[in-house]
Amino acid sequence: MLKEKLKNHQLILASGSPRRQQFLTDLGLDFSIELKPVEEIYPPELKGAQVAEYLAELKTTPFKNKLKENEILITGDTIVCLEEKVLGKPANEEEAHQMLESLSNRSHEVISSVCLTSAKKSVVFHDVTKVFFKELTTEEISFYIQAHQPYDKAGAYGIQEWIGQIGVDKIEGSYFNVMGMPLHLFYKEILEFIS
Rank of each mutant, 00 (worst) to 15 (best):
R19L: 15
R20L: 12
R20D: 11
Q21K: 15
Q22N: 15
Q22A: 08
F23S: 06
F23Q: 10
T25K: 14
D26V: 06
L27A: 11
L27W: 02
F31N: 03
F31E: 11
S32N: 01
I33K: 08
I33M: 04
K36M: 08
K36Y: 13
P37W: 15
P37R: 11
P37S: 13
P37D: 11
V38C: 03
E39P: 00
E40Y: 02
I41A: 13
I41D: 02
P43H: 14
P44D: 05
P44F: 06
E45P: 01
E45D: 15
E45F: 12
E45Y: 12
L46H: 05
K47I: 10
A49V: 14
A49R: 06
Q50Y: 09
Q50T: 03
Q50G: 01
Q50W: 15
V51K: 00
A52C: 09
E53I: 02
L55A: 15
L55D: 11
A56E: 04
A56F: 10
E57F: 08
E57D: 11
L58N: 04
K59F: 05
T60M: 09
T60V: 04
T60N: 03
T60L: 01
T61M: 02
P62V: 06
P62I: 04
F63E: 01
K64H: 05
K64E: 13
N65T: 07
N65E: 15
K66W: 00
K66A: 03
K66T: 03
L67G: 00
L67S: 00
K68I: 00
K68D: 00
K68Q: 12
E69S: 07
E69L: 13
N70T: 00
N70W: 02
N70Y: 05
L73Q: 01
L73M: 03
I74Y: 14
I74M: 04
T75C: 06
T75I: 06
T75R: 15
T75F: 09
T75E: 08
G76C: 12
G76A: 15
G76M: 03
T78Q: 09
T78E: 05
T78S: 09
T78F: 10
I79H: 07
I79W: 10
V80T: 11
V80W: 15
V80Q: 13
C81W: 03
E84K: 11
E84H: 14
K85G: 07
K85C: 09
K85S: 06
V86C: 02
V86K: 10
V86A: 13
L87S: 05
L87A: 14
G88Y: 14
G88V: 15
K89I: 04
K89N: 03
P90W: 08
A91P: 01
A91R: 12
N92G: 02
N92E: 06
E93R: 14
E93D: 12
E94M: 08
E95R: 09
E95V: 08
E95M: 07
Q98A: 08
Q98N: 12
L100C: 13
L100H: 07
L100G: 07
E101D: 04
S102H: 07
S102M: 08
S102P: 01
R106S: 09
R106N: 06
R106K: 14
